[in-house]
Computed example of a mutant assay.
Amino acid sequence: MAARKRAANRYYSGPPSDHFDGTLFFNPDGQMPGRFTDLLKWQLSGERSKWPTANPSPFEPTEPAARIDGGRLRLTMVGHSTLLIQTAGLNILTDPVWSPRVSPLSFAGPRRVNAPGIAFSQLPPIDLVLVSHNHYDHLDLATLKRLKAKHDPQVLTPLGNDAIIDAAVPGMRMTAHDWGERIDIGDDVAVHVEPVHHWSARGARDRRMALWAGFVVETPAGKTYFAGDTGFHGGANYRLMAEKHGAFRLAILPIGAYEPRWFMAPQHQNPDEAVQGMKLCNAAHAAGCHWGTFRLTDEPIDEPAQKLAEALQAQRMPQERFRALRPGEIWDVP
């Protein structure tokens, strides 16, 4: 029987590269996402920890300063992978999600268990939005529509994700980029789009049709690395960041959604690996994200923060250098 013809890429068309085969993106020397049978095996295992229906942050929602100038760098946790970065007079959002669920369905799927650390109405003027990939807990079209209407920010995203956003939010000021590209923002500010080990999909028939990435934000106040969502991949991409960028004032790294390891390891690093990654990329400080807001995997809600503390102690790293941020928490990074 003839092999089934591969579906054309609905989001992106371009020449093959070391991470694009002409139709689909892939992780060089890396691992593919699990098969559907693996997903079923995990979902039917019955080992998922129970989360509370509500888990309020100890920090009250905050009203950020309008701007942070000079050499200061301020980070405010909104929730999951949504953070407000304020530095060099710029307000930058990462993977903005204000919706109550991260799902294609409004009535089902992972639900927020704590309020956003900044109410949407209290956001300062947003200049730049970084969207790392198209999974629903990172690319939230409802939030992007709200940002377009109120702030009209510039959006940077990896290849193919622009097609998804543009179809739902016409007129959004947006550019799509490949790994290794540099985008000059102005006033000695640039954003670099960098490789991470992950995958992409909005449904069952568009796997790996859009690229995934991390970002390095380069300003006079130093470099900030937002890794988006990533597996550890033997530390390869962290080593690359050190080789290319030297060192970072801050790395924003995922620490949650890592169990069970047999299924999640290629796509989600655990806290111990996050600490290794911080050291490998030469980050002076790190903020832990991607935990405690949406139940995506098997580990208990507070385990990522606990495991992070244990990993820092085991690797003889001061606890204050790597903080597991909670919604509403503000960090003026040294």
Results as ranks from 00 to 15, higher is better:
94 T>K: 06
319 Q>P: 01
99 S>Y: 09
319 Q>L: 14
130 L>H: 07
54 A>P: 00
169 V>G: 10
236 A>E: 15
136 Y>V: 05
162 D>Q: 13
333 V>A: 00
297 T>I: 01
103 S>H: 05
12 Y>N: 08
5 K>Q: 10
211 L>P: 04
110 P>T: 06
304 P>W: 03
232 F>R: 10
90 L>Y: 01
269 Q>H: 00
130 L>V: 06
253 L>C: 09
184 D>C: 09
290 H>Y: 09
239 R>F: 11
72 R>K: 12
314 A>D: 12
260 P>D: 08
311 A>I: 00
163 A>P: 12
183 I>S: 10
206 D>W: 04
317 M>G: 02
1 M>G: 14
94 T>G: 07
260 P>R: 02
315 Q>F: 02
50 K>Q: 05
273 E>P: 04
10 R>W: 00
176 A>G: 12
141 L>N: 09
120 F>Q: 04
55 N>S: 12
135 H>L: 11
2 A>C: 00
174 M>A: 10
16 P>G: 07
161 N>M: 08
20 F>N: 01
303 E>H: 07
162 D>W: 09
158 P>C: 15
33 P>M: 02
174 M>D: 07
20 F>D: 06
118 I>T: 10
268 H>N: 15
1 M>A: 06
317 M>W: 04
2 A>V: 00
24 L>M: 05
125 P>E: 02
303 E>G: 00
70 G>K: 07
244 K>S: 14
281 C>S: 07
137 D>L: 01
303 E>N: 04
153 P>K: 05
17 S>G: 02
280 L>A: 11
31 Q>A: 15
144 L>P: 06
245 H>K: 14
186 G>N: 13
193 V>Q: 02
207 R>I: 10
